[in-house]
């Protein structure tokens, strides 16, 4: 065989392997058709998610909120969870007290849906709904869009949130990501395969009777927040660059929608920026870009009738009250709750 022919065959073989890498994964589509659970439904945020089986909306939460008819509802992630003791706050404010909708590892999409679906659309009219956040979280719409959390507060269709997410995910990276996802439908495969992988070792680890509750026990009894060791570096990534361009981020954030719902329903909203872990010799360092971002955020919120409170630089929250990362110590929780009550007369008027 001639040298050029051999060379051609070698190139064809290389091309075959490259094509194999690109084309074989398309088989996932066929696998999905054969294996996909019948109850997989289109996602409520189709711009970033394929059809999957979702966890049900938490109507129990709505029922208990309705029953309690609290004057204040607090929404946030573990930053709020480690700071606010809702029972203690209820005792301080009296009346119908406060309810907390804190979900560790949640982000603005969750906070928005909790506000919309568990409060406003459920017909609740508390005096104030308070959102706790860090730095630029409120406008970082793609921060922690975790289906396991969102499912509990999302209705079957969430066109407004989907539009916001789609607008946010418009960059080249997200476009490419979306195109690959649509082509291979790998997230549909993941939706049924991952639970199988997660659950399979349960059968090898516990007797038949204990299997049902093992994963819950692991999550709720072994890996609890209280069981973790202090980690100063936990979750301390500081934002920078485009993440701090308030004017650019605002239109693709849930913030205008939260304010619109607030104005429409007459429920006042407040936003509390919790203080990140301070330095040993003073408050947490802030870049000029972050200071400018916070200045614009405050102006925007206040001009739209919302209350803004900034914990940054609070001398009553020195480094010594912090546990891991930006979380505060459990022992400081009641003290923070009191500080929050005392330093926010506008909220608790």
């Amino acid at each position: 065989m001639s040298e050029s022919r051999v060379r051609l065959r070698r190139s064809a073989a290389l091309l075959a392997v490259l094509l194999g890498a690109v084309l074989v994964p398309l088989g996932l589509r066929a696998v999905n058709r054969a294996v996909r659970p019948p109850d997989a439904a289109p996602s409520y945020i189709p711009s970033i998610e394929s059809p999957r089986v979702r966890a049900p909306f938490d109507s129990d939460a709505v029922a208990s909120l309705r029953e309690a008819a609290n004057d204040y509802i607090l929404i946030g992630d573990s930053m709020a969870g480690t700071r606010i003791d809702p029972g203690h706050l209820s005792r301080l404010i009296g009346g119908h007290g406060a309810a907390a909708l804190f979900h560790p590892g949640s982000g603005p999409a969750y906070w928005y849906l909790a506000f919309k679906n568990l409060v406003i659309n459920a017909g609740l009219r508390p005096r104030v709904v308070v959102f706790f956040f860090r730095d630029e979280n409120l406008t970082d719409t793609l921060f922690r869009v975790y289906p396991s959390a969102l499912d509990r507060v999302a209705k079957n269709q969430e066109p407004v949130l989907d539009e916001i997410l789609a607008a946010r995910a418009r960059g080249a990276f997200y476009r490419l990501h979306g195109a690959i996802r649509r082509a291979y439908q790998y997230d549909q495969t993941r939706a049924w395969l991952e639970p199988i992988i997660i659950r399979a070792p349960v059968a090898w680890s516990a007797a038949r009777r204990a299997r049902k509750t093992l994963l819950d026990a692991i999550n709720n009894e072994v890996f609890t927040l209280e069981a973790l060791r202090p980690m100063a570096a936990a979750d301390m990534a500081a934002p920078g660059g485009e993440a701090l361009d308030f004017d650019r981020l605002l239109p693709t954030s849930v913030l205008p929608e939260i304010l619109r719902l607030s104005q429409r329903s007459g429920v006042r909203v407040a936003f509390v920026r919790v203080q990140r872990r301070p330095a040993a010799d003073g408050p947490a360092p802030q870049s000029p870009a972050l200071q400018e971002y916070v200045r614009k955020l405050r102006a925007y919120l206040e001009s739209n009738g919302a209350i803004f409170h900034d914990d940054w630089g609070d001398p009553d929250q020195p480094l010594s009250v912090y546990e891991d990362g930006d979380h505060v110590k459990k022992a400081f929780r009641q003290a923070y709750t009191e500080l929050f009550f005392r330093k926010n007369p506008e909220i608790f008027r």
């Binding site: 065989m1 051999v6 065959r9 073989a13 392997v17 094509l19 194999g20 890498a21 495969t189 991952e194």
Partner: peptide
């Protein structure tokens, strides 16, 4: 250097590369 690519080896390599990429996408 190889005299000639062996078709079944190439096919196996293409399949394996594809399966690995599929594994990455899903898992």
């Amino acid at each position: 250097e190889e005299a000639q690519p062996v078709p079944w080896v190439v096919a196996a390599q293409a399949l394996l590369a594809g399966l690995l990429v599929a594994g990455i996408l899903v898992l």
